[in-house]
């Protein structure tokens, strides 16, 4: 009886297998895209852009990642893709060194590798699709602030902390732009909020009472924007003191619709996914090589390349008109 059982199992397996394989034959280029975690709304919005690019280019897109941000899982998924023989792997690295081992292995097997959103070690990938340079962020922040107040008046900044490297970098470029282009504007104070919304709110309240001529608050850490907005709203200064800064659309939607916050600045995540797929396919087709100075990606047009970084370019400004199209 058990012999029959074994034979039944084997026959069943083979039969089932042939059914599944029948629908498998596919000779499209396969691009595999790895997010830090696949449930994260940020990466889901990246995928929307990637899907669009995949459709335009007629390729098969695999989008898989850990359900939480798990570096070990990322490695296993990449190793799986290697044996599946995909053509391109695009990675947002959770752990720079950890993932690089797997990526080097992929390159050895002739798979083209690029990173997006978060880079891996430079020798483990061909290009990094860089979503934003500190310079681009600083300039966009300052230009938008100047536009909101008509190029003159006092403003204050709320930063995550006074020591964090990226915050200082952004602040440096904001101040450089201010000095260079907007002589009639004056930065009266820079306050840290320790990446806490509550602290941002109390700091903003203090700024408002200490500087009656304040026309705008710029927050460059993501909890800072809603924190400052809440302070302005409670002080009854909605519309009189503008709020803007770096942040995620979802946590600011309420204030944007209420007219408290005018602009939220970040990059367009959909475009990031779109560009990553276009760059990956160009790599596989040998149309994009080391040393290239620019790269054309479908309907988005041309992007500059600095060294091995493909620059997504100017940050994106979310405002009342477009913020509802984004969900992250």
């Amino acid at each position: 009886m058990k012999n029959y059982l074994l034979r039944f199992c084997v026959a069943g397996a083979v039969l089932l297998a042939s059914l599944v394989t029948a629908s498998a034959a596919d000779s499209k280029l396969i691009v595999a895209m790895l997010p830090k975690s696949k449930g994260n709304a940020y990466f889901i919005s990246c995928k929307a852009g990637a899907d669009k690019a995949a459709k335009e280019l007629g390729i098969q897109l695999l989008f898989d990642g850990p359900t939480d941000s798990n570096a070990a899982k990322q490695n296993e998924i990449v190793e799986n893709w290697i044996t599946l023989g995909v053509d391109v792997i695009a990675v947002a690295a959770e752990n720079k060194e950890g993932i690089s081992t797997a990526l080097r292995k992929a390159q050895k097997q002739g798979i083209k590798v690029l990173t997006y959103d978060a880079d891996a070690m430079a020798d483990s990938r061909s290009f990094f699709v860089n979503q934003a340079t500190p310079q681009g962020i600083g300039q966009t922040l300052m230009d938008e602030a100047a536009r909101l107040v008509g190029g003159e008046g006092e403003f204050a900044m709320i930063v995550g902390s006074l020591t964090a490297a990226n915050q200082r970098e952004w602040q440096k470029y904001v101040e450089a732009r201010l000095k260079e282009k907007f002589p009639k504007m004056k930065l009266v104070a820079v306050r840290p909020c320790d990446d806490l919304k509550d602290k941002a709110q109390s700091e903003a309240t203090a700024l408002l009472s200490a500087n009656p001529k304040l026309k705008l608050i710029m927050a460059i850490c993501s909890p800072g924007v809603p924190g400052a907005a809440e302070a302005v709203k409670q002080a009854g200064l909605t519309g009189k003191v503008k709020v803007m800064g770096l942040g995620l659309p979802n946590e600011n939607k309420r204030y944007v619709h209420a007219g408290v916050t005018d602009s939220v600045i970040l990059w367009n995540t959909g475009d990031l996914g779109y560009l990553a797929i276009y760059a990956g396919v160009a790599l596989a087709k040998d149309e994009l090589k080391k040393g290239a100075k620019s790269f054309k990606a479908g309907s988005l047009g041309s992007f500059a390349i600095e060294g091995d970084n493909i620059l997504l370019g100017k940050p994106f400004i979310f405002n009342q008109g477009n913020i509802d199209q984004f969900d992250f």
Binding site: V10, V14, G85
Partner: peptide, 28 residues
């Protein structure tokens, strides 16, 4: 038995030849 059945199933269903003519997937 379950293991053998599983393995055979994936061997037949999970192995294919990719665009470059290399055998890829489970059966490597």
């Amino acid at each position: 038995y379950v293991l053998i059945a599983e393995w055979l199933f994936f061997y037949f269903a999970g192995t294919s030849t990719n665009r470059r003519g290399v055998i890829v997937g489970f059966g490597t």
